[in-house]
C-alpha cells in the first residue's frame, strides 16, 4: 500500500475518467432515446481510433483536427447503422435489438480484423508534460480532458437549447406524442443514433492519442461504458460524464490498494451493486 502514490494515481484516474465518460455518453443517449442497448458500442469506439490514425497517416492531418472529420463520419455512420440494423426491429422486444446491434458488432470486428489485422497501432503525440514532485500530467491527457468537456457542454447545449435537441428529448420521453406534434420521430431516432455513434467514435479518436490500440481495443471501454451508464443514470448523457469521472477516480484509487488485475472485478462489483439498489442508476432520470 503506497500512500505516496495516492495523489498521482488519483489524478491519472480522474483525467482518464473524463474520457471514459465521453465514451459512455453515446451508449446512454441511444438507450435513453430509443431503449436500445447498442452492443456494437465497443467496435465503434475502435473504428474511431482507426479513423483518427488513418487520417493522420494517410493525409498527414493532426489527430485533433482529424477528430472533426471523425465527428462527421460518426454521425453519418450512425444514421446508416440505424436504418440498416435498428429501424425495422425498433418496436420488437429488446432482445431483438440486442441481437441486431450485436451482429453489427461481429461484422465490424470481423471486417476490421481482415483489413487491419490485430497488429497494434499507435499515434505518436507528444505535447510535453506538467511535472511537480511525483505527479506527471501529460499534455495529451489534458487536451483529452478539455475536448471531453467541450463535447459534453456542446451536447448539453444542443439538447437543452436547440429545437432539434429538445425534440430528441421529447421523443425519448414519449414517442407517440412527439409524432402527434408533427415531429418526424423516425428522423429523430436516426439522428439520435447517429449522435450516439458520433460520440463513441470521437472518444475512440481521443483514446488513440493516449494509448496503442487494435480493432479489439474497444471492448474494454464498452464494458466500462455499461458501468458508467448505470452510475450516471440510464439515458442521462451529462450524468455519463459524472459517472465516468467517478469510475476513473475509483480505478485510480483501487490500483493503489490492490493488484491492478483486480480493478475490473471491483468495477463490475459496483455495477451489480448499483443495479440491485437503484436500477435506474445513481443519477437516474427515469
Amino acid at each position: 500500500m503506497n500512500i505516496d502514490a495516492l495523489v498521482p494515481s488519483s489524478i491519472d484516474g480522474l483525467m482518464l475518467g473524463f474520457v471514459y465518460g465521453l465514451a459512455a455518453m453515446g451508449l446512454t443517449l441511444i438507450f435513453g432515446v430509443m431503449r436500445v442497448i447498442n452492443l456494437a458500442h465497443g467496435p465503434v469506439i475502435a473504428l474511431g481510433m482507426f479513423a483518427v490514425y488513418l487520417i493522420g497517416t494517410q493525409f498527414g492531418v493532426n489527430p485533433y483536427l482529424g477528430l472533426i472529420a471523425v465527428l462527421v463520419l460518426g454521425l453519418v455512420l450512425g444514421i446508416v447503422m440505424y436504418f440498416v440494423a435498428v429501424h425495422r426491429v425498433i418496436n420488437a422486444p429488446e432482445l431483438t435489438t440486442l441481437l441486431a446491434t450485436f451482429s453489427v458488432n461481429l461484422m465490424i470486428i470481423g471486417l476490421g480484423t481482415v483489413v487491419f489485422t490485430t497488429t497494434p497501432r499507435a499515434i505518436d503525440m507528444d505535447l510535453g508534460a506538467f511535472r511537480t514532485g511525483a505527479i506527471t500530467i501529460l499534455g495529451t491527457k489534458v487536451v483529452a480532458v478539455l475536448i471531453a468537456i467541450a463535447v459534453t457542454v456542446g451536447l448539453y447545449l444542443f439538447l437543452y437549447r436547440t429545437r432539434v435537441g429538445k425534440s430528441i428529448r421529447a421523443v425519448a420521453n414519449n414517442r407517440a406524442a412527439a409524432e402527434l406534434m408533427g415531429i418526424n420521430t423516425t428522423g429523430v431516432l436516426a439522428l439520435s443514433f447517429g449522435i450516439g455513434i458520433m460520440l463513441a467514435m470521437t472518444s475512440g479518436g481521443l483514446i488513440a492519442t493516449l494509448f496503442s490500440f487494435t480493432i479489439l481495443a474497444g471492448g474494454v471501454y464498452e464494458l466500462k461504458s455499461f458501468v458508467i451508464v448505470v452510475l450516471g443514470g440510464l439515458g442521462n448523457p451529462t450524468g455519463a460524464l459524472v459517472g465516468g469521472i467517478v469510475l476513473g477516480l475509483l480505478e485510480g484509487l483501487t490500483t493503489i490498494f490492490m493488484p491492478v488485475g483486480w480493478v475490473p472485478i471491483i468495477e463490475y462489483g459496483v455495477f451489480v451493486l448499483i443495479l440491485l439498489i437503484r436500477p435506474t442508476g445513481l443519477f437516474g432520470a427515469r
Binding site: 429545437r163 429538445k166 425534440s167 428529448r169 421529447a170 425519448a172 420521453n173 414519449n174 407517440a176 406524442a177 412527439a178 402527434l180 406534434m181 408533427g182 415531429i183 432520470a285
Partner: peptide
C-alpha cells in the same frame, strides 16, 4: 392535431418546452 387520451405530455420537459414542441410545424 390530436389531443390524445390521457394527455400524453412530455413529462420530463418544462411547460414552455412542451409548448415549443407543440409549435413544431
Amino acid at each position: 392535431v390530436m389531443i390524445p387520451e390521457g394527455r400524453q405530455l412530455f413529462t420530463d420537459l418544462t411547460v414552455m418546452e412542451n409548448l415549443e414542441m407543440g409549435a413544431t410545424p
